[in-house]
Design a protein around this nucleic acid. Sequence first.
DNA 1: CGGTATCCGAATTGATACTG
DNA 2: CAGTATCAATTCGGATACCG
Lengths: 137, 137
Amino acid sequence: MSVGHTGITTPEPLPEPLLSCDDDCGIRDVLDRLGDKWSVLVVVELGAGMRRFKELQRAVDGISQRMLTLTVRRLERDGLVTRTVHATVPPQVEYELTDLGRSLTLLVKGLADWSLAHRARIEAARREWDTKADMPS
Amino acid sequence: MSVGHTGITTPEPLPEPLLSCDDDCGIRDVLDRLGDKWSVLVVVELGAGMRRFKELQRAVDGISQRMLTLTVRRLERDGLVTRTVHATVPPQVEYELTDLGRSLTLLVKGLADWSLAHRARIEAARREWDTKADMPS
DNA sequence: CGGTATCCGAATTGATACTG
DNA sequence: CAGTATCAATTCGGATACCG
Protein backbone atom coordinates (compact mmCIF):
# COMPACT_ATOMS: atom_id res chain seq x y z
CA MET A 1 0.00 0.00 0.00
CA SER A 2 3.05 2.20 -0.40
CA VAL A 3 3.60 3.44 3.13
CA GLY A 4 6.69 5.12 4.41
CA HIS A 5 8.70 7.64 2.39
CA THR A 6 7.78 11.19 3.33
CA GLY A 7 5.25 10.11 5.86
CA ILE A 8 2.33 10.25 3.49
CA THR A 9 0.36 7.07 3.27
CA THR A 10 -1.15 8.07 -0.08
CA PRO A 11 -4.68 6.77 0.32
CA GLU A 12 -5.10 7.95 -3.27
CA PRO A 13 -2.03 6.49 -4.97
CA LEU A 14 -2.00 9.06 -7.77
CA PRO A 15 -3.29 6.67 -10.42
CA GLU A 16 -1.64 6.36 -13.80
CA PRO A 17 -3.49 6.85 -17.10
CA LEU A 18 -5.74 4.07 -18.25
CA LEU A 19 -6.25 4.69 -21.92
CA SER A 20 -3.88 3.77 -24.69
CA CYS A 21 -2.86 6.41 -27.20
CA ASP A 22 -4.91 6.10 -30.35
CA ASP A 23 -5.76 9.30 -32.08
CA ASP A 24 -6.28 11.05 -28.78
CA CYS A 25 -2.52 11.35 -28.39
CA GLY A 26 -1.75 13.73 -25.63
CA ILE A 27 -5.18 14.82 -24.63
CA ARG A 28 -5.75 11.98 -22.25
CA ASP A 29 -2.55 13.03 -20.55
CA VAL A 30 -3.66 16.59 -19.91
CA LEU A 31 -6.98 15.33 -18.76
CA ASP A 32 -5.44 12.93 -16.30
CA ARG A 33 -3.43 15.78 -14.92
CA LEU A 34 -5.92 18.62 -14.94
CA GLY A 35 -9.27 16.96 -15.45
CA ASP A 36 -9.98 16.63 -11.78
CA LYS A 37 -12.13 18.93 -9.79
CA TRP A 38 -9.52 21.34 -8.47
CA SER A 39 -6.18 21.33 -10.30
CA VAL A 40 -7.03 23.93 -12.88
CA LEU A 41 -8.52 26.23 -10.28
CA VAL A 42 -5.36 26.02 -8.22
CA VAL A 43 -3.19 26.65 -11.27
CA VAL A 44 -5.28 29.67 -12.12
CA GLU A 45 -4.95 31.11 -8.66
CA LEU A 46 -1.23 30.49 -8.64
CA GLY A 47 -1.07 32.15 -12.02
CA ALA A 48 -1.61 35.39 -10.15
CA GLY A 49 1.48 34.81 -8.07
CA MET A 50 2.91 32.95 -5.10
CA ARG A 51 0.41 31.80 -2.51
CA ARG A 52 0.47 30.29 0.93
CA PHE A 53 -1.58 27.22 1.71
CA LYS A 54 -4.30 29.09 3.50
CA GLU A 55 -4.44 31.76 0.86
CA LEU A 56 -4.96 29.13 -1.77
CA GLN A 57 -7.69 27.51 0.23
CA ARG A 58 -9.52 30.78 0.68
CA ALA A 59 -9.11 31.67 -2.97
CA VAL A 60 -10.35 28.45 -4.42
CA ASP A 61 -13.57 28.55 -2.44
CA GLY A 62 -15.04 25.24 -1.60
CA ILE A 63 -11.91 23.13 -1.62
CA SER A 64 -11.25 21.20 1.55
CA GLN A 65 -7.91 21.12 3.26
CA ARG A 66 -7.53 17.55 2.24
CA MET A 67 -8.24 18.12 -1.43
CA LEU A 68 -5.97 21.13 -1.56
CA THR A 69 -3.16 19.08 -0.12
CA LEU A 70 -3.69 16.28 -2.59
CA THR A 71 -3.97 18.72 -5.47
CA VAL A 72 -0.85 20.73 -4.80
CA ARG A 73 1.04 17.53 -4.07
CA ARG A 74 0.17 16.21 -7.46
CA LEU A 75 1.00 19.45 -9.19
CA GLU A 76 4.30 19.49 -7.38
CA ARG A 77 5.04 15.96 -8.40
CA ASP A 78 4.37 16.80 -12.02
CA GLY A 79 6.72 19.73 -11.86
CA LEU A 80 4.06 22.37 -12.32
CA VAL A 81 4.34 23.86 -8.87
CA THR A 82 7.10 24.42 -6.34
CA ARG A 83 6.61 24.08 -2.62
CA THR A 84 8.78 26.15 -0.31
CA VAL A 85 8.73 25.58 3.43
CA HIS A 86 9.85 28.41 5.68
CA ALA A 87 10.88 27.14 9.08
CA THR A 88 9.11 29.94 10.87
CA VAL A 89 6.64 29.76 13.66
CA PRO A 90 3.93 29.37 12.82
CA PRO A 91 5.08 27.37 9.81
CA GLN A 92 4.68 28.92 6.42
CA VAL A 93 4.54 27.12 3.10
CA GLU A 94 4.53 28.91 -0.20
CA TYR A 95 3.40 27.54 -3.53
CA GLU A 96 4.40 28.95 -6.86
CA LEU A 97 4.11 27.93 -10.47
CA THR A 98 7.20 26.68 -12.23
CA ASP A 99 7.95 27.78 -15.77
CA LEU A 100 6.18 24.65 -16.90
CA GLY A 101 3.18 25.56 -14.82
CA ARG A 102 3.16 29.09 -16.13
CA SER A 103 3.20 27.81 -19.70
CA LEU A 104 -0.06 26.10 -18.87
CA THR A 105 -1.79 29.19 -17.59
CA LEU A 106 -1.86 30.61 -21.09
CA LEU A 107 -3.91 27.68 -22.30
CA VAL A 108 -6.11 27.68 -19.26
CA LYS A 109 -6.69 31.35 -19.80
CA GLY A 110 -7.81 30.46 -23.28
CA LEU A 111 -10.35 28.05 -21.90
CA ALA A 112 -11.63 30.60 -19.44
CA ASP A 113 -12.01 33.18 -22.17
CA TRP A 114 -13.82 30.69 -24.34
CA SER A 115 -16.16 29.90 -21.51
CA LEU A 116 -16.92 33.52 -20.79
CA ALA A 117 -17.43 34.25 -24.45
CA HIS A 118 -19.85 31.40 -25.03
CA ARG A 119 -21.44 30.93 -21.66
CA ALA A 120 -24.63 32.67 -22.62
CA ARG A 121 -24.92 30.69 -25.80
CA ILE A 122 -24.40 27.42 -23.99
CA GLU A 123 -26.95 28.23 -21.35
CA ALA A 124 -29.42 29.18 -24.04
CA ALA A 125 -28.85 25.89 -25.84
CA ARG A 126 -29.30 24.12 -22.56
CA ARG A 127 -32.56 25.83 -21.74
CA GLU A 128 -33.85 25.06 -25.19
CA TRP A 129 -32.93 21.41 -24.86
CA ASP A 130 -34.57 21.19 -21.46
CA THR A 131 -37.71 22.84 -22.76
CA LYS A 132 -37.99 20.42 -25.65
CA ALA A 133 -37.43 17.57 -23.23
CA ASP A 134 -40.01 18.60 -20.68
CA MET A 135 -43.02 19.02 -22.94
CA PRO A 136 -43.29 16.26 -25.51
CA SER A 137 -46.88 17.31 -26.17
CA MET B 1 -36.69 12.34 -10.01
CA SER B 2 -37.41 14.01 -13.33
CA VAL B 3 -39.05 11.22 -15.25
CA GLY B 4 -41.01 11.56 -18.41
CA HIS B 5 -40.06 13.89 -21.27
CA THR B 6 -38.21 12.05 -24.03
CA GLY B 7 -38.40 8.78 -22.23
CA ILE B 8 -35.04 9.16 -20.56
CA THR B 9 -35.14 8.70 -16.82
CA THR B 10 -31.81 10.47 -16.38
CA PRO B 11 -30.22 8.41 -13.63
CA GLU B 12 -27.46 11.02 -13.88
CA PRO B 13 -29.49 14.22 -13.87
CA LEU B 14 -26.78 16.31 -15.54
CA PRO B 15 -25.84 18.19 -12.38
CA GLU B 16 -25.40 21.91 -12.33
CA PRO B 17 -22.16 23.62 -11.26
CA LEU B 18 -21.53 23.84 -7.55
CA LEU B 19 -18.99 26.60 -7.23
CA SER B 20 -19.75 30.27 -7.19
CA CYS B 21 -17.81 32.59 -9.44
CA ASP B 22 -14.98 34.21 -7.55
CA ASP B 23 -11.83 34.81 -9.47
CA ASP B 24 -12.14 31.52 -11.24
CA CYS B 25 -14.76 33.04 -13.50
CA GLY B 26 -15.46 30.79 -16.38
CA ILE B 27 -13.00 28.03 -15.75
CA ARG B 28 -15.26 26.06 -13.52
CA ASP B 29 -17.78 26.17 -16.30
CA VAL B 30 -15.49 24.61 -18.87
CA LEU B 31 -14.42 22.05 -16.36
CA ASP B 32 -17.95 21.07 -15.56
CA ARG B 33 -18.56 20.59 -19.23
CA LEU B 34 -15.34 18.95 -20.37
CA GLY B 35 -13.63 17.83 -17.21
CA ASP B 36 -15.16 14.41 -17.24
CA LYS B 37 -13.57 11.28 -18.53
CA TRP B 38 -14.81 11.32 -22.11
CA SER B 39 -16.17 14.64 -23.39
CA VAL B 40 -12.92 16.01 -24.71
CA LEU B 41 -12.07 12.76 -26.42
CA VAL B 42 -15.43 12.75 -28.15
CA VAL B 43 -15.02 16.37 -29.18
CA VAL B 44 -11.61 15.59 -30.58
CA GLU B 45 -12.89 12.69 -32.61
CA LEU B 46 -15.79 14.73 -33.89
CA GLY B 47 -13.30 17.42 -34.77
CA ALA B 48 -12.26 15.16 -37.61
CA GLY B 49 -15.77 15.14 -39.00
CA MET B 50 -19.23 13.68 -38.69
CA ARG B 51 -19.44 10.32 -36.96
CA ARG B 52 -22.03 7.67 -36.33
CA PHE B 53 -22.59 6.32 -32.87
CA LYS B 54 -20.73 3.11 -33.46
CA GLU B 55 -17.88 4.91 -35.17
CA LEU B 56 -17.49 7.15 -32.20
CA GLN B 57 -17.48 4.24 -29.84
CA ARG B 58 -14.79 2.46 -31.83
CA ALA B 59 -12.72 5.62 -32.11
CA VAL B 60 -12.73 6.59 -28.49
CA ASP B 61 -11.50 3.20 -27.39
CA GLY B 62 -12.62 2.11 -24.01
CA ILE B 63 -15.83 4.07 -23.74
CA SER B 64 -18.91 2.05 -22.98
CA GLN B 65 -22.17 2.46 -24.82
CA ARG B 66 -23.68 3.95 -21.74
CA MET B 67 -21.00 6.57 -21.25
CA LEU B 68 -20.96 7.49 -24.91
CA THR B 69 -24.69 8.05 -24.81
CA LEU B 70 -24.45 10.19 -21.71
CA THR B 71 -21.53 12.13 -23.12
CA VAL B 72 -23.00 12.97 -26.50
CA ARG B 73 -26.30 13.75 -24.82
CA ARG B 74 -24.63 16.30 -22.64
CA LEU B 75 -22.66 17.79 -25.51
CA GLU B 76 -25.84 18.01 -27.49
CA ARG B 77 -27.64 19.70 -24.67
CA ASP B 78 -24.89 22.27 -24.37
CA GLY B 79 -25.10 23.02 -28.06
CA LEU B 80 -21.68 21.67 -28.91
CA VAL B 81 -22.89 18.74 -30.95
CA THR B 82 -25.82 18.03 -33.24
CA ARG B 83 -27.57 14.70 -33.39
CA THR B 84 -29.22 13.68 -36.64
CA VAL B 85 -31.43 10.63 -36.82
CA HIS B 86 -31.94 9.01 -40.19
CA ALA B 87 -35.08 6.91 -40.24
CA THR B 88 -33.42 4.12 -42.13
CA VAL B 89 -33.28 0.49 -41.30
CA PRO B 90 -31.14 -0.24 -39.47
CA PRO B 91 -31.37 3.14 -37.76
CA GLN B 92 -28.52 5.55 -38.25
CA VAL B 93 -27.58 8.45 -36.02
CA GLU B 94 -24.95 10.97 -36.92
CA TYR B 95 -23.14 13.31 -34.59
CA GLU B 96 -21.37 16.44 -35.67
CA LEU B 97 -19.83 19.43 -34.00
CA THR B 98 -21.67 22.71 -34.12
CA ASP B 99 -19.80 25.93 -34.79
CA LEU B 100 -19.60 26.33 -31.05
CA GLY B 101 -18.14 22.87 -30.71
CA ARG B 102 -15.65 23.51 -33.46
CA SER B 103 -14.48 26.66 -31.77
CA LEU B 104 -13.54 24.48 -28.85
CA THR B 105 -11.40 22.09 -30.83
CA LEU B 106 -8.85 24.80 -31.36
CA LEU B 107 -8.32 25.11 -27.64
CA VAL B 108 -8.33 21.40 -27.11
CA LYS B 109 -5.73 21.08 -29.81
CA GLY B 110 -3.68 23.57 -27.85
CA LEU B 111 -3.88 21.40 -24.79
CA ALA B 112 -2.89 18.32 -26.73
CA ASP B 113 0.10 20.12 -28.20
CA TRP B 114 1.14 21.34 -24.79
CA SER B 115 0.91 17.84 -23.45
CA LEU B 116 3.01 16.38 -26.23
CA ALA B 117 5.57 19.12 -25.91
CA HIS B 118 6.02 18.74 -22.17
CA ARG B 119 5.19 15.13 -21.58
CA ALA B 120 8.80 14.08 -21.22
CA ARG B 121 9.54 16.91 -18.82
CA ILE B 122 6.57 16.06 -16.68
CA GLU B 123 7.45 12.41 -16.52
CA ALA B 124 10.97 13.32 -15.57
CA ALA B 125 9.76 15.54 -12.76
CA ARG B 126 7.50 12.76 -11.64
CA ARG B 127 10.26 10.19 -11.55
CA GLU B 128 12.44 12.56 -9.61
CA TRP B 129 9.71 13.22 -7.08
CA ASP B 130 9.04 9.53 -6.67
CA THR B 131 12.72 8.82 -6.18
CA LYS B 132 13.05 11.45 -3.51
CA ALA B 133 9.96 10.07 -1.82
CA ASP B 134 11.03 6.45 -1.77
CA MET B 135 14.46 6.83 -0.20
CA PRO B 136 14.49 9.38 2.60
CA SER B 137 17.91 8.03 3.66
C1' DC C 1 -28.05 0.02 -34.85
C1' DG C 2 -28.69 2.95 -31.20
C1' DG C 3 -30.11 3.26 -27.48
C1' DT C 4 -32.36 2.61 -22.10
C1' DA C 5 -32.84 0.48 -17.29
C1' DT C 6 -30.73 -1.55 -13.48
C1' DC C 7 -27.45 -3.23 -10.49
C1' DC C 8 -23.13 -2.89 -8.25
C1' DG C 9 -18.17 -2.14 -7.35
C1' DA C 10 -14.61 1.40 -7.67
C1' DA C 11 -13.04 5.83 -7.34
C1' DT C 12 -13.61 10.71 -5.55
C1' DT C 13 -14.73 13.73 -2.25
C1' DG C 14 -16.15 15.90 2.17
C1' DA C 15 -16.34 16.11 7.23
C1' DT C 16 -14.14 15.52 11.18
C1' DA C 17 -10.61 14.86 14.46
C1' DC C 18 -5.88 15.02 15.47
C1' DT C 19 -0.60 16.42 15.04
C1' DG C 20 4.13 18.89 14.63
C1' DC D 1 -0.35 27.19 9.97
C1' DA D 2 -0.07 23.26 7.38
C1' DG D 3 -0.83 19.34 7.17
C1' DT D 4 -2.29 13.77 8.14
C1' DA D 5 -5.56 9.91 9.25
C1' DT D 6 -9.91 7.93 9.10
C1' DC D 7 -14.43 7.34 7.88
C1' DA D 8 -18.79 8.14 5.52
C1' DA D 9 -21.36 9.90 1.58
C1' DT D 10 -21.52 10.58 -2.92
C1' DT D 11 -20.56 9.96 -7.64
C1' DC D 12 -18.93 7.60 -11.48
C1' DG D 13 -18.32 3.98 -14.47
C1' DG D 14 -18.71 -0.72 -16.29
C1' DA D 15 -21.43 -5.02 -17.14
C1' DT D 16 -25.42 -6.83 -18.40
C1' DA D 17 -29.99 -7.38 -20.19
C1' DC D 18 -33.50 -5.70 -22.85
C1' DC D 19 -36.19 -2.55 -26.41
C1' DG D 20 -37.79 0.05 -30.89
